[in-house]
């Protein structure tokens, strides 16, 4: 699993750590973790709809924040759950730009075993970091 939920970091919220060989993979892992916080079985979500997500930010961390925030936005505004992301990131001097395709379907309480609603991404202890061979992120979601 490219992400794991942590037990003892956030008492009332949901904390996870994610990894990826590339920055793009890391973002995709984080996106899946957000969906998996809300729905128990990611495989129960079928890929019927594709949405384009575009965000930009000066820092990589805030780029991830904005990307995850889009996933939460689609859950409320369009009742969409995604279980696959194709992410492309362009790192430029002053700005970082993300373009992604998100695949999923409309949330269906009868079909999807739902867990807890994600309200927001918290910036408390929010981190993106590159170690020698792998990108890592730590995220706390307000639920």
């Amino acid at each position: 699993m490219p992400y794991k939920f942590l037990e003892d970091v956030a008492i009332a919220d949901v904390a996870f750590e994610a990894t990826g060989k590339t920055l793009e993979e890391l973002f995709e892992s984080c996106g899946l973790a957000v969906t998996n916080t809300m729905v128990k079985d990611l495989d129960s979500v079928k890929r019927k709809i594709v949405k384009d997500i575009e965000v930009e930010s000066e820092s990589i961390e805030l780029l991830l924040f904005a990307f995850l925030q889009e996933i939460i936005f689609y859950k409320d505004a369009k009742l969409l759950l995604f279980n696959k992301f194709d992410v492309r990131i362009r790192q430029m001097k002053k700005k970082n730009r993300l373009k992604a395709k998100a695949y999923g379907e409309k949330l269906n309480m009868k079909k999807h075993e739902l867990k807890v609603d994600v309200k927001a991404v918290s910036l408390h202890n929010f981190q993106v970091k590159k170690t020698r061979s792998v990108w890592k992120a730590s995220v706390i979601l307000d639920v």
Binding site: F5, L6, E7, D8, V9, A10, I11, A12, D13, V14, A15, V116, V143
Partner: peptide, 11 residues
């Protein structure tokens, strides 16, 4: 006030 994280509680 919670004393146990959600992840721990589900276990």
């Amino acid at each position: 006030g919670r004393t146990m994280s959600r992840t721990a509680a589900t276990r």
